[in-house]
Amino acid sequence: MVWNELAGMIVIGIGVAFDFLGCLGLLRLPDVYNRLQAGTKCVTFGTCGILLGVFLMQGFTPTGIKALVGIPFVLLTSPVGAHALAKGAHIFGVKLTDKTVVDHYAEDRGNKLTL
């Protein structure tokens, strides 16, 4: 069975590429919230890709099934951690970048943001 190893290699390659792009976004984008956007989305997708690739290469062995069970766990925990960090950063008082168009959250919380 060569083809499932090939498919696994390709899926892991896609995952690693998106991990790399996410980390590049972490360096390039201007403020905390945009960095969280790039970081959370790309790195979550990349990690899911790696786990799926491990499943494809191992098949229905204990290792493969554990990798498959890991995917919903990553999909559930990673966004929740990101919400918590974004909310904490906003309460902590990190300003949004200069390009920002609108901020309803600060208006509703009713205090001026000061760094």
Binding site: D31, N34, T100, V102, H104
Partner: peptide
């Protein structure tokens, strides 16, 4: 050029 205009909407 980073084509972004971010903001928080409700």
């Amino acid at each position: 050029k980073l084509p972004i205009d971010p903001g928080i909407v409700k």
